[in-house]
Simulated assay, not measured.
Amino acid sequence: MAPGNNLPDFLTNTPLHPSFDRDIRDTHLVYDYDAQDNDGNPEKWRYELWCFSDTRVVYAIHGGPMAGRLNYQRATYQCIRPGELWQINWLEETGTVVSAVYDIKEQKMTTIIAFSEGHWSEAEKAHGNKRNKDDLKRWRTLADVGKQTSRFMLSEQASILEVFKGKGNLEPISDDDPLF
Rank of each mutant, 00 (worst) to 15 (best):
D103Y: 14
W120Y: 15
Y102P: 00
I104A: 12
S116L: 10
T111C: 14
E84W: 14
E117H: 13
S121R: 08
V101K: 03
I113C: 09
T94H: 05
L85P: 05
V101H: 08
E93H: 03
R81K: 14
V98M: 05
G83K: 07
I113R: 06
I104Q: 14
S99T: 03
N89P: 00
S99F: 02
Q87Y: 02
G95A: 10
I104T: 07
E106C: 03
Q87L: 07
E122I: 03
I113Q: 05
Q87K: 04
T76F: 10
E122N: 13
K105F: 10
T96I: 06
S116W: 05
Q78V: 05
S99D: 04
N89C: 07
D103S: 09
C79D: 06
Y102D: 01
T94D: 09
L91H: 09
W120A: 07
M109C: 07
Y102H: 08
I113E: 06
I104P: 10
T111V: 15
T94A: 10
Y102T: 00
E106T: 00
E93M: 08
E122D: 14
Y102Q: 00
E84M: 12
T110E: 10
H119W: 10
S121W: 09
Y102L: 10
P82A: 14
E122Y: 15
E106L: 09
D103L: 06
T111G: 08
T96Q: 11
Q107E: 09
W86A: 02
K105R: 13
G118D: 12
G95W: 03
E117C: 14
M109W: 08
E122T: 03
V98A: 12
E122L: 15
W86G: 01
E106K: 06
T110P: 01
E84S: 12
W86E: 01
I80S: 13
K105A: 14
C79V: 07
V98W: 02
E106D: 11
S116T: 03
A114H: 05
F115G: 02
G83S: 11
D103C: 06
L91M: 11
V97I: 12
E93F: 04
M109Y: 06
V97G: 08
N89V: 01
E122M: 15
W90Y: 15
E84F: 13
I104Y: 11
S121P: 01
E117S: 14
M109R: 00
T111A: 11
T111M: 10
E117Q: 15
